[in-house]
Nucleic acid binder design. Structure first.
Length: 282
DNA sequence: CATAGATCCTGTATGC
DNA sequence: TGCATACAGGATCTAT
């Protein structure tokens, strides 16, 4: 379940391994791997230079040298972008492969659950003089983005009439947060995920945002959360933040703050883990 | 327009 | 042993 810290770890790895290289070959091995793309991925990638690797929330993209377009990737639930020597055997869920003109390591897209996807999209101007793929325009900035506007976020969230966890997971309000970091942030803030947004004052929302930033920053420093074998960096290595989780996946364990047994509720077709004592509904 | 819920997918774990 | 079911959840689509 790659969220912001995991995607950022992948971005850093890719930036080091593919920036400046020229695409010379494209293999698409699964029909769901390329989505929303007009035309042929191969035609739009071969001969292009990768200028850098950028990210907003959980979206990754690589601006291409000539055409004002970018190669965009979303990892979905189980997507991996791996650098592999050409001689390495194909992974069981290999969905696509990019080769480069220098014949060095290949970029492989491996995705067991096929919720991830690749495409080439036109770049459009963003609000502050940069560019982003058209397909990413509706995604809000993430809390680690220097241009993230804290007060605008607080105001927009408080104007919503919904549950706080649903708001945290809404990528058009704040991006990069998924189920793991939503549950961890809410636990740290002492808020139940079903609390109504309108019942929180500005100070409380700012405090929650501080927890979101802190938990993501800590996770990033540990290489991300590898709760199962599905999240790895570009070298196939796991992160260690799973050892620091206080709520997510801790159902039945004692709360590390008060000792109460961590509970779980179904919510938005997913699980929410929380401490019934530290995170009262009202 | 805003919000809520269903849906896509497959490997692993669990129950009978 | 074998079969059926539940579960993991990001983003999008549809319904209200």
């Amino acid at each position: 379940m790659p969220e912001l810290p995991e995607v950022e770890v992948v971005r850093r790895g890719l930036d080091r391994w593919v920036t400046g290289r020229t695409v010379s070959g494209v293999d698409v091995l699964h029909s769901r791997a390329v989505r929303r793309h007009e035309g042929n991925l191969e035609d739009d990638l071969i001969g292009e230079d990768v200028r850098c690797v950028s990210r907003r929330g959980k979206y990754l993209w690589m601006p291409l040298g000539r055409t004002g377009t970018a190669f965009v990737a979303h990892l979905g639930m189980s997507g991996q972008l791996l650098m592999q020597p050409a001689a390495a055997p194909d992974e069981p869920h290999l969905r696509a492969r990019l080769e480069f003109a220098d014949d060095g390591a290949q970029l492989r897209f491996v995705d067991q659950r096929t919720f991830g996807w690749l495409m080439v999209a036109p770049l459009v101007p963003d609000e502050t003089g940069g560019h982003l793929p058209e397909i990413v325009r509706h995604i809000a900035r993430d809390p680690l983005d220097p241009e993230f506007d804290d007060e605008a976020f607080v105001a927009r969230l408080r104007a919503r009439d919904t549950e706080i966890k649903r708001a945290l997971l809404d990528q058009s309000l704040v991006s990069g947060i998924g189920n793991i970091y939503a549950d961890e942030s809410l636990w740290r803030a002492g808020l139940h995920g079903r609390r109504r947004t309108g019942s929180l004052d500005g100070a409380r929302v700012r405090e929650l945002l501080d927890h979101v930033r802190a938990v993501m920053t800590e996770a990033l420093a540990q290489g991300g959360t590898s709760f199962d074998s599905l999240y790895v960096n570009v070298n196939g290595e796991s992160g260690y933040f799973d050892r620091s989780l206080d709520a997510y996946g801790q159902e039945g364990e004692p709360c590390s703050r008060c000792g109460t047994t961590i509970a779980r509720e179904r919510f938005m077709n997913r699980s929410s883990a929380f401490c019934p004592r530290c995170q009262p509904i009202s």
